[in-house]
């Protein structure tokens, strides 16, 4: 059962007509959007089933299946290890674990952000045919990124064993870290998915920004105390989200500043996401 009571825009009657959109508070039906998002979360059976289906589909007709994902990550890390040990002569103690953890978490954060603009476009077939709350497709996309993360984190455990790092109790703190990344993921996709459906250059723009962030965020390079105080690191939102998962994995609890920053970023992103979604959801269908 649902009711829609929407205020009129200005229209001149006729077959094809022009209308100038004007700002109207009723164009931001936030309560409807929150209700729809809540129903999306409750429909967990649906988006979980579609995620598993996506996973199976990625590896149908392949020999190794998900092992390919892990293999490609191992190749990358092996290459960087070779470079460092042969040419740069830097000590590699714990660097492999640092790199593996960083790449896995970046795969999650960067992946969930870059999948954002495409999340609803991928689901075009479903959206046009089934009257389901659209948050389902966003949750399915975020879940897909998390499934990839849980594949890649195996490489981190492998490098940990190689470098003889014992698993420490701090690893449990990675779970709330992952939850924060999940909140950020849902938020950023709520912003990017409707925008990506409406404006088709959001996808390439996001990819460009992520390329920049990949280099600037300390994933390939280990930051020392000086680096950490530099605005380039301090003002990078991806740094905080990365640290709250990576630091616990590497044996530290993470600084309170990191946790505060990550919480703030995650929830502000979610807040902006809900507003963006509320503004765009009624006309989203027409732009897919």
């Amino acid at each position: 059962m649902y009711k829609k009571d929407i205020n009129e825009h200005e229209f001149r009657l006729g077959g094809i007509q022009t209308s100038k959109p004007s700002f109207n508070f009723y164009e931001w039906p936030v309560p409807n959007a929150i209700d729809e998002l809540f129903r999306s979360v409750l429909a967990v059976r649906i988006w979980w089933a579609i995620s598993l289906d996506d996973l199976a589909g990625r590896y149908s007709r392949t020999l190794l299946g998900p092992v390919w994902l892990i293999l490609s990550q191992i190749m990358w890390i092996a290459g960087i290890y070779l470079l460092h040990s042969r040419f740069m002569g830097a000590s590699t103690s714990n660097y492999l674990s640092f790199l593996a953890a960083g790449l896995a978490v970046w795969g999650l954060i960067g992946g969930v952000t870059s999948d954002g603009p495409n999340a609803l476009l991928r689901a075009k077939g479903y959206i046009e045919s089934y009257p389901l709350p659209m948050g389902i497709y966003i949750l399915r996309s975020v879940t897909g990124s998390f499934i990839t993360f849980f594949h890649l984190i195996l490489v981190f455990f492998a490098t940990s064993i190689l470098e003889r790092n014992l698993p420490s109790i701090t690893m449990v703190a990675a779970i709330p870290g992952l939850l924060l990344v999940a909140v950020y993921g849902v938020g950023v996709q709520l912003i990017l998915a409707p925008m990506g459906a409406r404006f088709r250059d959001i996808g390439p723009a996001v990819a460009s920004v992520l390329n920049l962030a990949l280099v600037l965020t300390p994933i390939f390079w280990v930051p020392d105390a000086d680096h950490l105080n530099n605005p380039l690191v301090r003002l990078n939102p991806f740094y905080y989200l990365l640290e709250v998962v990576r630091a616990p994995l590497l044996g530290t609890w993470g600084t309170p500043g990191d946790w505060l920053g990550a919480t703030l970023i995650a929830f502000v992103t979610l807040f902006i996401g809900v507003l963006t979604y509320a503004r765009m959801r009624t006309t989203l269908f027409y732009w897919l």
Binding site: K4, H9, F11, I127, E128, S129, Y130, T282, T283
Partner: peptide, 8 residues
């Protein structure tokens, strides 16, 4: 599936 622009 489609949201009306106006009306009840």
């Amino acid at each position: 599936i489609v949201q009306p622009r106006s009306g009840n």
